[in-house]
Structures are given as structure tokens and as C-alpha cells.
Computed example of a mutant assay.
Amino acid sequence: MLKPVALEMYGLLLRPWERRDLDAVRRGLADPDFRRWNTVDSPPPDEDGAREFLASRTANWERGVGASFAVTDPTGDVVLGHINIGMIDFDAHRSGRVGYWVLPEARGRGIASHALEAMTRWAFGDLRLHRLELGHAVGNDASCRVAGRCGYRYEGELRGAMFDTGGVPRDIHVHGRLATDPFPRLTGIAVRPT
């Protein structure tokens, strides 16, 4: 079991998902950009899908295979997006796979980059992981830029490695970061008053 924690860095609060976040999850899952770039096994973009999303995130903490956070403003009240480490292997490879999304109204402010860096530092520090991997559909240039800003090096392309929400096979870019890689220098304030 992983003990759920909250992380504060870069003007963001990353906290475990809560029931009160149901509407933010539903909006995230229904976002056309989320649907465009994600996989066929994404929960449906409705209230049942949002409940499924929340339940699976809690279960992953309990089973010790994933750590999932609501990315929020400093108060923890305004959800801006989601970030997680899944497929955690604490034993043989000390590795995990990261994923994230940002709600449309919070895009363009560096939220994904700052949340990814905060979670990465936690994973390499507190969890003592050695490698994190990030995969995204080819063509998702925004995710490619986030990976680069956070020191996740481009490592190659996997052909037909995912099926999108329409069931069409897509190629993915793979990026990786090691605990021994230098920390990137992120600048700017991730959250500004609305």
C-alpha cells in the first residue's frame, strides 16, 4: 500500500482525489482534447465514468501500484488537472509510468510542467524510484513539450502501441527520466489568480 500524500510546489497543491472532485473529473474525461489523445480504455465521459476514475485511483493507492493526484490551486479547492504515476514497480526495476491532463480553462499556464516536476521529484525522492517513463500519442505536441521541459528525454517511437478512444491504433513517443538526470530549471508561477 502507498500512503496517500499531498505535495506542495510551484504554487500548486497535488492531493489525492476526493469525492467532491466528481464534476472536475467528468469535465476532464469529456474534454475533446482528452478524448483525442487518450486510449480506448479511458473511462466514459459521464458521471459513471468519473466515479470509475475516482474508484480506480483510490484502489491503485491501496494496492501500491499507482499514485494519483488532483492538481489544484494552493487552497486545494480549484481542480486544474490530474497527474499520476502508474505501473509502479518497487522491486526489480524501481520504475513507473506517468500521465497527466489539464482542464481547458487551466491550459497555457505551465500547470502540467510544474505538476509533473513536483511529482517526479517526489517519486525519485520519497518513493526511491530510478526511472519514470512518459508516453504520448504522436502528434500531441503539447505533451512532447511538457516532457522536454521536465527533462524527460525522447527515447523513440512505438508503432501502433495504443488504441485511441475510437479504437484506432496510434503510434506513441516514449520519453524517460532517470533519478540521476539533472533537475530542469522551471521558471514562472504556475497558478495566477483568476
Rank of each mutant, 00 (worst) to 15 (best):
V191R: 05
G125V: 05
D21F: 09
H93N: 12
F90A: 09
R131A: 01
S56L: 15
V65P: 00
D171P: 04
A24I: 10
L103N: 06
L12E: 05
L54S: 13
W37H: 04
P4D: 09
R94M: 07
Y154T: 07
A142H: 07
W61P: 11
R19W: 02
W122L: 11
S143F: 11
R19H: 10
R149D: 08
A6V: 12
N84L: 10
R27A: 06
A50G: 12
T39V: 11
D48F: 14
R131W: 04
L186I: 09
T120V: 12
G28A: 07
S68I: 00
L134V: 05
E133C: 05
M87W: 04
F183T: 14
P184S: 10
E155Y: 01
T187H: 09
T75G: 07
G108P: 01
L14W: 06
T39R: 11
L129H: 03
G176E: 04
G64K: 02
N84I: 02
E8S: 15
G176R: 04
E18T: 10
P169V: 09
P32A: 08
G108L: 02
V71G: 04
G160C: 10
W37A: 03
N60M: 14
M162Y: 07
L14F: 12
D31W: 07
V138E: 08
L12D: 01
R192S: 13
R153Y: 01
Y152S: 01
I189S: 14
P193V: 14
D41F: 02
A147I: 12
F183E: 15
P74S: 09
R192W: 09
D46Q: 07
